[in-house]
Computed example of a mutant assay.
Amino acid sequence: MDPRSVSVSSISILPDRPVLIAGPTASGKSALALHIAQTQGGVIVNADALQVFDGWRILTARPDDADLAAADHALYGHVPFDATYSVGHWLRDVAPYLSGPKRPIIVGGTGLNFNALTQGLAEIPPTPAAIREAGNALSLDALRDALDPETAGRIDLQNRMRVQRAWEVLQTTGQSLAQWQDSTPPALLPATQATCITLDAPKDWLNDRIARRFDLMLDQGALDEARAMLPRWNPDHLSSKAIGAPELIAHLKGEVTLQQARDAAIIASRQYAKRQRTWFRSRHKDWHHIAADSADLSATLRFADPAED
Rank of each mutant, 00 (worst) to 15 (best):
P306E: 12
I124Q: 02
R262K: 14
N136P: 00
D64T: 04
D309V: 12
Q260E: 15
W279N: 02
I197T: 03
H73K: 00
L199N: 08
I197L: 11
R4S: 04
Q158N: 08
G100F: 14
D2P: 13
Q158L: 11
L138D: 05
P63E: 07
A261F: 09
D208H: 09
P190K: 13
D263T: 09
G55L: 08
E247N: 10
S7Y: 07
M229H: 05
P80C: 12
V79K: 00
D148P: 00
G174Y: 12
W90G: 01
G108H: 11
Q179A: 15
Q259V: 14
I155Q: 13
R103P: 06
L189W: 04
S298W: 10
D148A: 10
L297G: 05
A268C: 08
A49H: 01
R4A: 14
P3Y: 15
G100C: 13
L98M: 12
A222M: 03
V256L: 11
E247Y: 07
W205N: 01
T184D: 04
A142H: 14
W180K: 11
A191E: 15
A245Q: 03
M1K: 07
T195S: 06
L297N: 05
L206W: 04
I106P: 01
E150D: 15
T60S: 14
G55E: 02
C196D: 01
T39I: 02
V79A: 06
D141C: 03
P231N: 09
D64R: 06
I266T: 04
V163S: 09
A187F: 08
I21F: 11
S86W: 10
T39N: 08
R283T: 00
R275M: 13
I155M: 11
L14V: 02
A226M: 07
N46A: 00
D208R: 09
V107W: 04
Q51H: 03
R302F: 13
V163E: 05
A187P: 03
E168M: 13
L177T: 06
S9A: 15
E133P: 00
L121I: 01
W287L: 10
L75R: 04
Q158G: 14
K274P: 00
A61W: 02
T25C: 14
D200F: 08
